[in-house]
Structures are given as C-alpha cells and as structure tokens.
Design a protein around this nucleic acid. Structure first.
Lengths: 227, 227
DNA sequence: CGGGATCCAAGTGTGGATCCAC
DNA sequence: GTGGATCCACACTTGGATCCCG
C-alpha cells in the first residue's frame, strides 16, 4: 500500500464495517499506523485525538467530513472508548457541541445528540496510562443503537440541560447536572468565547460547551454486550 | 524596535491616525516593512493582500479583528488604493461579503456595506506593474465619509442588487449590475460553495460573492480631494 | 477593460479526544 | 474521581486584495 491509498475505501454496508472492525481486534496502534501513513505522536498529551483519527482511516470513514456521520452512507458514528486496566471506560465521551446561540432544536427527536447517537460503532482501545500509546491494542467493536431505557434516560438529561440553555442560564451550567449526559467546556482553552443567549434573551459571550456521555453510560453499554 | 513591539499601538483619535498616515506618505513598502517584521512576499501574485496588512500594522490597526472596523475605537476602516501610473485606481475595492443565506438586513441604513463605508481611511499606493512591489511608495491618505450624492448612488445600487438576492436570483447575479457598487465572486477558486437561498426560498449552493466598489467610484473620491 | 477567478493569512468552529488540579 | 481545562487537525469564513483571459 502506498501513500496515495493510505485511506481505506468506505464500507458498503454495516456488515462490512463490522467485519473490518472485528478483523483488527487485538492489533496494536503501531501495527495499524504502519499501513496507514499516520506517524505516531510524540506523546498522548499532544495528539489526544490521534487514535480516533487513525481508526477512522483504517475503517474507511469519510475523512474530515463536516457535521456528517463518520460513515455517511451508513449513518454510523465511530467512537473510540479508552479502557482502564479494570476494563471500565477511563474517560467520558464527547458527543457534539451545545447550541448556545438560540439555534437549538426544541425537541429531543430532532436534537443533534439523538442523531449522533442513533447508530454508533464503539471501538474499545486499551487506555491504561502504563501502556505506551504505540502498544495499546484495539478491542472488539460493538455496533449499537440506544436501547429504549437508555434513550429515555438520555432524553430526560437532555431536556433538563436544554431547559437551562434556552432559559439563558448558560453561565450557571455545570458538569454536575445530568445522570448520563452532561455539559462541559469544549474549547482550545479557558479564554475561548462564543456567542450565546443570556437572561432576557440578551446576547452574551461565553465558553463553548459540549455534550459528553459519562463513563457510567458507556460502562453500561459494555456490560450489556460483554456480560 | 524588537519583534514583540513590531505592531504600532492603536491611534487614540482620528487626528492621530491621520497624522501618522501623513507621516508615512512618500515612503516605500520596503522602508515600512523593515521596521515592522513583515517579510516581503516573493511576488505580488502570492501575497495579494500583503501591502494592506503591512499598512494596518504600521498604523496600529487591530490585527486580525473579526467583523470589526480596522480601528475599532475610532470606527474607521482602512483601504489601500492601488494607483496606475496615470494616478487613477487600477483595481476595484472589496467591501464585504454578500449575505446570500437570507440573513441580510432589509434596509440600506442597517446594511453591512453602509457601515463599512461610513468612515474610511483611503491610502493610495503606487500600483503600476512596472514598479516592483518593494519599491512602491505610499501616497497621501484621505480620511473620508461618503458625500450625500455618492451615498445616494451607493444606496440605489445596493437596493437594486439586494432585491435580486432576496428574490432568490443569486445565480443570475452579474458584475455588470450597479453603477458604482457591484457584486463579484469572492472565493478561493471557482469551485467554492456557500449556502444561499434560491427561487421560492429553496436552499441552494452557490459561489460566495462580495460587494466591490468600481474604480469609477474611488476615482471620484480622489478627484474631489486632490483637484 | 473588466468580469470572473484566484491567492494568502488568520481566526473560528467542529471533530477527534485526554489532561490534571482540587 | 471528575469537573473544568486543554491539545491537535483541518475545513470554513472573513479580511486583505490582485490576477488574467476573452
């Protein structure tokens, strides 16, 4: 494989995608990077998103697509899931940005969060800090849609959180809210600002925020599929 | 002057701005670039906007400001004006992008074009192609607001052009329209696309456009101030 | 000649996430 | 443990304009 073909073709079906994902289970990030012209970052601090981008290439996701599912034709999102030595997720999972500017869809059914999570390929990756990044291995992928009870829980959280947003309480948002879905900063640093709507509809500048899934949520997905 | 101070402080008043601008009249771009840590581009093809950005630094414009006047506190825009050997403007002058997505203000009084041109520091620069870029000299600046007759003409053009835009006739726009103000492509190349509104309000993808002042307009400004 | 095409820089936003002080 | 802070890549947009062929 040369540099010009270092990105896999998009999979034609969910079955093909899952077959490819299962085929790489057990391989290390080094083994995968060698075939895909993707230099290893110096450390995990620089290149936090590196493994996710590598795995997108490996599986044939549409590179750099904008506000589209990773596998556009299939409507499937891909998410890596860093696992601690215990087998539990080590980190929360970013979903999408929070619309703070008044452009939010009013209903859960039409929300960006629901659309993003409608069909997800979860790709577990060893995430124990004692394992150097190049040595970390990929686990067995799960192609998932939210079970009814989990979707109901997400909806409850989303409605609670978005009520705060549309009421203009953006500066009272805290990551303590929400049992499975939470809102946290999503920015280059603490000085980044984006346009939002404050009390009485007044325009305000505020820290950009994102929706994240708590580890309790992704842990539950793993439990249901592996136990 | 070291690298850390290679940008002038913002002028505190229009008088200070004009004093500074007059102080550099007659200097070449090389002379100005040496003090401001701004390497000369290889040619004029690469670096089309280089002289404008150099002169913003020299005069203390807020660097890289977003949708704000160059001299924010003063509400003044700066525009370079490339002059042919004849003394007439060689090129049209870019004003701002055309809102094709339905977000346009309906009235001239509130329009982006009017606000941009409300107060302009015109900075003539030698633009004859026979003069190498580094040797081109800066002329005598003009601090200007539109005279009543010129503003009326701009308004007529703007209303004619925006009527086409709001009627969804984006793909029938042509640079032939408008006596002083025209609409032309404003993009990296002919393949760039942006969201617009077409006939019957249907969303369409179309070439990004900008408002430009024809040379007849800037020539008239020069005539009134120098003759 | 001038309408349509193009060039560069820098900031912003989105998408990929993990870091780290309390 | 985890809420708040941060890191990289890259597409897009805006702001600075001039190029160039019919």
């Amino acid at each position: 494989m040369n540099e010009a073909t270092a990105v896999a073709a998009p999979p034609a079906s969910e079955a093909e995608l899952l077959t490819r994902a299962h085929a790489i289970a057990g391989l290390s990030l080094t083994e995968l990077s060698e075939a895909f012209d993707t230099p290893l970052p110096a450390d995990t601090r620089s290149g936090k998103g590196w493994s996710g981008q590598l795995l997108e290439r490996v599986l044939g996701a549409t590179a750099g697509a904008l506000a589209e599912p990773d596998f556009q034709a299939l409507g499937v999102e891909m998410k890596t899931l860093p696992l601690a030595a215990s087998g539990r997720p080590r980190e929360s999972t970013y979903v999408c940005t929070v619309p703070l500017d008044g452009s939010a869809e009013p209903r859960w059914e039409d929300s960006w969060v629901r659309r993003k999570l409608a069909r997800v390929l979860w790709l577990p990756v060893e995430g124990d800090p004692s394992i150097p990044l190049p040595h970390r291995r990929v686990g067995t992928a799960i192609l998932w849609s939210p079970e009814a009870d989990l979707e109901a829980a997400l909806r409850t959280d989303w409605e609670e959180l978005m009520e705060r947003v549309v009421m203009g309480e953006v500066d009272e948002l805290s990551a303590h809210l929400g049992s499975y879905l939470q809102i946290r900063p999503k920015a280059a640093d603490g000085r980044a600002l984006t346009r939002g709507v404050g009390h009485d509809g007044a325009p305000v500048l505020t820290l950009p925020r994102g929706f994240y899934l708590r580890t309790a949520f992704t842990d539950e997905i793993l439990r249901r599929h592996y136990l």
